[in-house]
Simulated scan of single mutants.
Amino acid sequence: MQEIPFFLRVGHLLTYSASDSSTTDFISPSTFILLGIPDLEAAHVWISIPFCTMYAIAILGNFIILFIVKMEPNLHGPMCYFLRMLAISDLVLFTSILPKMLAIFWFNSKEINFSACLTQMYFIRCFLVMESGILVAMAFDRYVAICDPLRHSTTMTNPMVAKIGLAMVLRGGTLILPHPFLARRWPYCRTNIIPPSYCEHMAVVKLACADIRVSSYYSLSVAFLVTGLDLFFITVSYTQILRAIFSLPTKDARVKTFVTCGSHIFVILDSYIPAFFSFLTQWFGHNLALHFHILIANLYLVVPLMVHPIIYGVRTKEIQDSLLQLLTHKGTKTIQK
């Protein structure tokens, strides 16, 4: 049995065991084979139901948020602009993963072109880094709004929000760009079979018959650097925010101020707690079956993307009111007709 690292999401290296029995002799395959969830092929159709449901919820929820934020002038603030960036990031991430995964589950379409595999790998890693940066930007916005409210309107201007958003895009794009280029240069002479349901970076480069330490070390460095810095800035921001909240004179003021951070806090927890759980499962669950590890890895990647729009829809009163007003207005027009 060979120990193969396969899943690295913004700082977590997860492992699973895979057999070498399918190895063969070829160089640089034109296609890879994605197994979906090994040993559960007979249940792929049933497994696809929750994944398809999550995809539909994520698509609908994020498009509703994008529409409401665009149409409602009251929501044209820095936090909502960042929310739009997060929604777009979630949509791209989900669309990079789920259509091919569902094609495997429904049609047994396991082949993926080598270039398409590298493109999927790039988009997954790139937008995960962007999403992490957006959460940092949201934390900074909450810090300015609560700790220095008089300067919020002059600090978090539209040009500043645009610059922060551009910086997050450039950071993700440039830091992840070496991954596909390094992966393309390796010769592949072992196997073209990838056990996970999508082209994860370490799952692909581990198939190369070359010294891949450059790819591995760079991947680990970027992942731990991004995760470490982002969590550090979020922690510092919320430490200052909590100090400012607890210094308020009345309990009502403290609760009201804290509620304005509620959605963002839940999204942060939703993003990092499943990752931490998956990390523990992979490192300490060596006796668990391969398909269980892959299921956990898939779920911890896609569940937060589905939950994000639900959190903001439930906990953001302005979005609730706008959606209710929109539905009521349409209902009234239908009755009048």
Rank of each mutant, 00 (worst) to 15 (best):
H291D: 06
L175I: 04
V144E: 08
V10K: 00
L128K: 11
T53Y: 13
K206D: 12
D211W: 07
H201V: 02
F279I: 00
L13H: 06
S89V: 12
H291Y: 15
F140W: 12
H293Q: 05
D230M: 12
L40N: 06
F7A: 03
I245Y: 07
S263E: 08
F224G: 00
P38A: 06
K317F: 09
I310Y: 01
A137G: 01
L299A: 12
Y122H: 09
Y217L: 13
M130L: 14
N158A: 09
T53W: 04
L98W: 08
I273E: 03
L8F: 05
I124V: 14
N158H: 14
L324G: 02
G77R: 15
I37A: 01
Y122I: 02
V144C: 04
Q282T: 01
V226S: 03
P180W: 07
S219R: 02
L326C: 14
E41R: 05
I176S: 11
S22E: 13
S19Y: 09
V10D: 02
K70G: 09
T281M: 02
T227L: 15
I310M: 04
L75W: 12
N298V: 05
I65V: 12
I273H: 07
S278Y: 07
T174S: 10
R125V: 05
P195S: 06
D141S: 10
N62H: 13
H76W: 15
F232R: 05
F82K: 02
T95W: 10
V161T: 05
C199D: 05
E3K: 15
